[in-house]
């Protein structure tokens, strides 16, 4: 598959007067934004009927750069705001940009319940394992023993796995990639956008300024390489399991892809019956 040039993305989808982005050198959030916009371009989605919703944090600044309706809400509440937008106007395509802290800690409950409710929104969670905006504090996804400014002696809390949570609660589409998987990312975001119901794409992204620096992981190039080495594709992983082997690498790939009736469809059905 051929890729289009960035000038189309910039011209058609970005608010040029807002660029350059506020993200640090080597931060992966810009890449994920690019992947999402390319997925939207490929699907020919009407930006006049698309709303980007976000909470607070680095990743939540994304909608500010995208030329569409944007709702930069409160910390952790993006999915709850998005639920309101989607239910009130089901014609709109609602895409949530969130981070690991926004989605997994302060907004964890909204995340679970939007999946349970199966609201037809796409949530793109950019997981950089740390709170970047506030300068590098421990996040719910921070790996054990990792250093952050609030775990100066190493993290003693077990991290959560957002994608596995989404899978267990029953999201009809779940995928996880890293920023070093642009092609797969775009393809998964496309599938997520086409899925009716709650779709979740988690993208592991480097935060060289906080996570990389505090854990001596080098620059974004080193971190990107590290992501490739410390993850394993679900297909390989399943083969390993079948062979009785195991690994502590993080599983990436398309984790769930099923059909499940969403909230709006169900709601409209019984509304129709009432009339």
């Amino acid at each position: 598959m051929g890729f289009i040039s960035n000038d189309i993305i910039i011209e058609k989808y970005l608010r040029k007067d807002m660029l350059p982005t506020i993200f640090c050198t080597g931060c992966g959030i810009g890449s994920v934004m690019n992947y999402a916009l390319r997925a939207i371009h490929d699907l020919n989605i009407d930006m006049n009927e698309t709303v980007f919703v976000s909470g607070i944090g680095c990743s939540s600044r994304v909608p500010g750069y995208i030329y569409s309706d944007g709702l930069h809400s409160l910390h952790g509440r993006a999915i709850a705001y998005a639920t309101g937008v989607k239910l009130a106007n089901p014609k709109l395509k609602v895409i949530v940009f969130t981070g690991d802290g926004d989605c997994g800690a302060i907004g964890g409950n909204h995340f679970l319940h939007a999946i349970r409710r199966n609201v037809d929104i796409t949530v793109i969670s950019i997981n950089n394992f740390i709170y970047g905006m506030t300068g590098g504090q421990v996040a719910p996804t921070t790996p054990l023993n990792s250093k952050t400014t609030t775990t100066p002696y190493g993290n003693i809390e077990y991290p959560i796995d957002l994608s596995m949570m989404a899978k267990v609660i029953g999201a009809p589409y779940v995928a996880r990639w890293t920023t070093a998987h642009p092609v797969q990312c775009i393809s998964s975001i496309k599938k997520a956008l086409q899925k009716t119901g709650f779709s979740f794409v988690e993208v592991l992204a480097p935060c060289p300024t906080s996570y990389g620096r505090l854990n001596k992981m080098g620059n974004t190039l080193d971190m990107t390489k590290h992501f490739k080495e410390s993850t394993i594709n679900i297909k390989l992983y399943e083969k390993m399991l079948a062979d009785g082997k195991t690994t502590d690498k993080m599983v990436i790939g398309e984790l769930v892809d099923i059909e499940k009736e969403d909230f709006n469809t169900k709601y409209n059905k019984f509304c129709g019956e009432l009339k």
């Binding site: 040039s5 000038d7 890449s31």
Partner: peptide, 17 residues
């Protein structure tokens, strides 16, 4: 191949087709 444009997190590269 446009891979540089994809990898660039800052929309800083444009490769004309």
């Amino acid at each position: 191949c446009h891979l540089c444009e994809l990898m660039c997190p800052d929309f800083a590269i444009i490769v004309e087709d």
